[in-house]
Simulated scan of single mutants.
Amino acid sequence: MKYRHVVLIVILILVIDQALKFWIKTHMYMQQEFIIFPNWFRIHFIENEGMAYGLKFGGDFGKILLTLFRLAAVVIGFWYMKKLVRQQFHTGLLICGSLILAGAAGNLIDSMFYGLIFSDSTYDIARFLPAEGGYGAFLHGKVVDMLYFPIYEGYLPKWIPFKGGDYFIFFRPVFNIADAAISTGVITILIFQKRFFSKQLEASRADRNEPIVNGAVE
C-alpha cells in the first residue's frame, strides 16, 4: 500500500462525511428527525462542541485549545502514516490508520469553519454563507451529528440492580461518519493488533536473536 492510497481513503471519507453534514445543515433544523427504518435507524440532527456526548472543555478558550490540538494531531497523523507506509506496515493497519485520520480531519473541519460559513440551526434551517456572517468565529464551529440507532427503547426489568425500572435506550449516542470511521479504525486495530504488528515484532525479536518458529516468536 502506498501513501497516495492513504490520502485517497482520507479524501473519500472526508467527501462523504462533509457532504452529509452539508446536507443536514441546509435541509434540517436542530433536533429535527427523519425515521429511515422504524425503531432502529433515524437521521436526528444535533450539534456538539466537539467532545464526546456534547461535553464542553473550558468555555471559549477551551474550544479553541481543543480545535488547535486536533489540528496538530491531524498534521502529525499524516506524517506518522507516511512513516508507517515507508516501513511497510500491514495493509490493514494502514487502512485503519487512514480511517482514524479521516475521522479526525472531518470533525476538525466542522470545528474550524462551520461557525463562519453557516447561520445558526437552532430555530430554522441554516443558510450557507449568510450575508450577516456565520453563527460563530473561526475555530468556534460545532460538530454536526446525525446518525442515531435507538435499537431498543423501553423500561428495564425491575430486577436489574441499580437501573431496574429506568427508561433505557440502546444505542443512545448520535454520531457522524467521521466518528464511525474513527471507531471502526480503533476497534479493528484492537481486534487484529497481533496480526497487524506481527512482522515488526518478528523483526524486533530477530534482532535480539530470539527464535521464530513457523512465523511466530517462541
Rank of each mutant, 00 (worst) to 15 (best):
G50N: 06
M51Y: 10
Y53L: 15
G54V: 09
K56V: 07
G58H: 06
G58T: 07
G58E: 10
F61W: 11
K63C: 06
L65M: 14
L66P: 07
T67Q: 04
L68Q: 05
F69W: 08
L71I: 15
A73E: 02
V74R: 01
V75Q: 06
I76A: 15
G77L: 04
W79G: 05
W79T: 02
K83H: 07
L84I: 07
Q87K: 15
F89Q: 03
F89H: 10
G92A: 07
L94M: 10
I95V: 14
I95W: 08
I95K: 03
L99A: 01
I100N: 01
I100L: 08
A102H: 03
G103L: 04
G103W: 00
G103S: 08
G103E: 02
G106T: 03
N107A: 09
I109W: 01
I109C: 08
I109L: 10
S111H: 04
Y114S: 04
Y123H: 15
Y123F: 12
Y123D: 15
D124S: 14
D124C: 10
D124W: 04
L129I: 13
E132Y: 08
G133H: 11
G133I: 06
G134Y: 00
G134V: 00
G134F: 01
Y135E: 01
L139D: 00
L139A: 04
K142I: 05
V143K: 02
V144F: 05
D145G: 07
F149G: 07
P150L: 13
E153G: 08
G154H: 12
G154T: 10
Y155T: 13
P157I: 06
P157L: 05
K158Q: 13
K158R: 14
P161Q: 12
K163V: 15
G165V: 08
G165F: 05
D166H: 13
Y167C: 09
Y167T: 11
F171M: 12
F171P: 04
V174A: 00
V174M: 02
I177E: 01
A178G: 08
D179T: 01
A180W: 00
A180V: 11
A181N: 03
A181R: 03
A181C: 06
I182R: 00
S183K: 07
T184W: 02
I187C: 11
I189D: 06
I189W: 05
L190I: 11
L190D: 10
I191C: 12
I191F: 15
F192C: 02
Q193I: 13
